[in-house]
Simulated assay, not measured.
Amino acid sequence: MPSSAPPPSSTVPTGAAAASKRERRKEARPGELLEAALELFVEKGFAATRVDEVASRAGVSKGTLFLYFPSKEELFKAVVRENIAGRFAEWNDELESFEGSASDLLRYCYKVWWERIGCTKASGITKLMISEAQNFPELTLFYQHEVIQPAQALLRRILQRGIDSGEFRALDLTHVAYVVVAPMIFLMMWKHSVGACVPEGAGFVPEKYIAAHLEALLHGLCAAPHGTGVVPASPLSPSSPPPLSSSSL
């Protein structure tokens, strides 16, 4: 008489296996919710994104979402920490261990930023903040504290490293840090606005733009008089910070 027991290869899960699968699913939910939230925040903006849309895209109920994130504001903060703010410890460690000149470090900084933030969906967060900052002052202060201030501090450390080594001249670190970050902001705005509508092959290549900006930043636009290696002084007021020049980098 044939046996009625299921074959050894049966895929019917045991109670323990099913419980383990549910537990793994539960552990994955915060990440799935953050991914869905990032996509919707970038697509629609903060104000227009509804938490039930986030829950639906993540495949859970709105009630489940609120188990992990008590409000849309807290969900947004978690998205920022997951994709940008949480990376500063890693970037500071890389700065400490980097071997090379300050110019090389600055080049590496742009490369890493583009690969990990600029060319990803996370770059849309900055465009969102620029668009909606005035309407959400609490989130703006959060972003200032969690992203802008650490970024400024990191860039000032890179510039100070060049000054201390004699590679860079003494600079107005705060304002030159804004010069360093300016092309990053431009690229994020481009990617999520005009650039999204420009046909491929229009001639703009982000990597080449970054390289061109670096050359202008590190070597300036003014040609040094032949044989002197000295860039002519710019007609700045005495209180203005000195310009960057090829002779001091």
Rank of each mutant, 00 (worst) to 15 (best):
V12T: 09
G166F: 03
G162H: 08
S103I: 11
E73H: 00
G100D: 03
M1V: 09
V42D: 04
S239R: 14
H213C: 14
E23K: 15
S56R: 09
F41M: 02
L244Y: 05
P70S: 07
T64K: 07
T120N: 03
P30A: 00
G31R: 07
G100Y: 01
S20V: 14
N135Q: 03
A182D: 03
H192Y: 13
G220A: 07
S20A: 15
P150S: 04
A85D: 00
V194I: 07
T126R: 08
E207A: 06
K44W: 05
E53A: 08
G15L: 13
F46R: 01
T126N: 10
K21M: 10
G63L: 08
R50Q: 11
A122T: 01
L34R: 00
W113C: 06
S97G: 15
P242M: 13
H219E: 15
P150L: 05
I148W: 13
L187I: 02
A28E: 09
Q134Y: 01
L214D: 05
Y108S: 15
L159K: 13
D164Y: 04
E82H: 00
S97M: 14
G203I: 02
G59C: 09
L67N: 12
I117M: 01
S10A: 10
R169I: 14
C119T: 11
S247M: 08
P238K: 11
L38G: 01
I210H: 06
S4T: 10
S9K: 09
